[in-house]
Design a protein around this nucleic acid. Structure first.
Length: 267
DNA sequence: AACCTATCCAACCGCACGTGT
DNA sequence: GACACGTGCGGTTGGATAGGT
């Protein structure tokens, strides 16, 4: 006798949210604060299940969510954290407070996983072919072009609708702190990339020791941790170097990186 | 212009976990 | 301890759209 699904009731609406529904939900949360999701549909008249309301809020309507293209620093953070934590998107998202776990997960699945695969393929083809530096360089260039992928939210209108709410949300102290941090970041034009690492330093019990370069594990494989390197500061992996040097990959750099990889017996 | 294919991302689904009774 | 309920999380899906033929 299992628990019935929350959304199997007749008359529960599914699918994309309309701006009207968003406004109703935001207005309700503005008044009552997030939480007690079970009561949200009944109190608002929304024909949505509580779970759908919660997801809509946390993944989309919540104030301070940064949408749009990921910066190279954020990409590096995600790769770094995914290598350390695995597919624990919520944990990864906690280091990128402006991004939702869903957003990070989507970005990983649609962009970063492919980039890493391509990078590995490129390096392997370089290693197996003695005169492949030119073709590999072209491949790397193509990969770097894909790094500038931009996706624009079609719902920035909602953000504008929420501007008034964002100016005066009912803040908890933590929420307030996050918002202040986000405001600062927005003023600076990009996120403070050091802040998550400071957070990592503050949460050593949470973050596994970061692996040596290129030990980026596949999602379906167990995380391998090199305990000999536990005392080491987390070095940026080779692929992160590559990502951070976006647009500046030179053939000799690739050779250097490849040699770096080979020296660590990663192939 | 019409069709096909690939890509992207919002939303859904089902399970796990925490808490209260 | 057992159960119900509320919530969190990760995997997956389906519709919209862009790009190619």
């Amino acid at each position: 006798m299992g628990r019935p699904p929350c959304c199997d009731k007749v008359g529960i609406k599914k699918g994309p949210w309309t701006p009207e529904e968003d406004i109703i939900l935001v207005s309700y949360i503005q008044e009552h604060g997030p939480g007690n999701w079970r009561s949200v549909p009944t109190n608002t008249g929304l024909m949505r299940c509580s779970k759908s309301c919660r997801l809509r809020w946390t993944n989309y309507l919540r104030p301070g969510i940064k949408r749009g293209n990921f910066t190279p620093h954020e990409e590096g953070m995600i790769i770094h954290l995914q290598a350390s934590l695995g597919n624990r998107w919520a944990a990864i998202a906690s280091y990128l407070p402006q991004r939702t776990d869903n957003d990070i997960k989507n970005y990983w699945n649609t962009h970063l996983k492919k980039k890493i695969n391509k990078f590995q393929t490129a390096v392997e083809s370089y290693v197996t072919s003695s005169d492949s530096s030119t073709s590999t360089y072209h491949e790397m260039s193509k990969i770097n072009q894909s790094a500038s992928t931009i996706y624009a939210s079609s719902t920035e209108n909602i953000s504008r609708l929420l501007e008034g709410w964002m100016r005066s949300p009912p803040k908890t102290s933590q929420h307030k702190h996050q918002q202040e941090q986000q405001d600062q970041d927005q003023d600076q034009g990009e996120i403070n990339v050091l802040q998550p690492y400071q957070a990592m330093a503050d949460h050593e019990e949470v973050v596994e020791p970061v692996m040596s370069s290129f030990e980026i594990h596949q999602a379906d494989q167990p995380l391998l941790v090199d305990h000999h390197q536990e005392d080491m500061k987390p070095p940026f992996s080779v692929i992160e170097k590559w990502l951070f040097d976006e647009g500046a990959v030179q053939t000799d750099n690739l050779m250097e990186l490849t040699a770096d990889c080979c020296s660590q017996s990663l192939f």
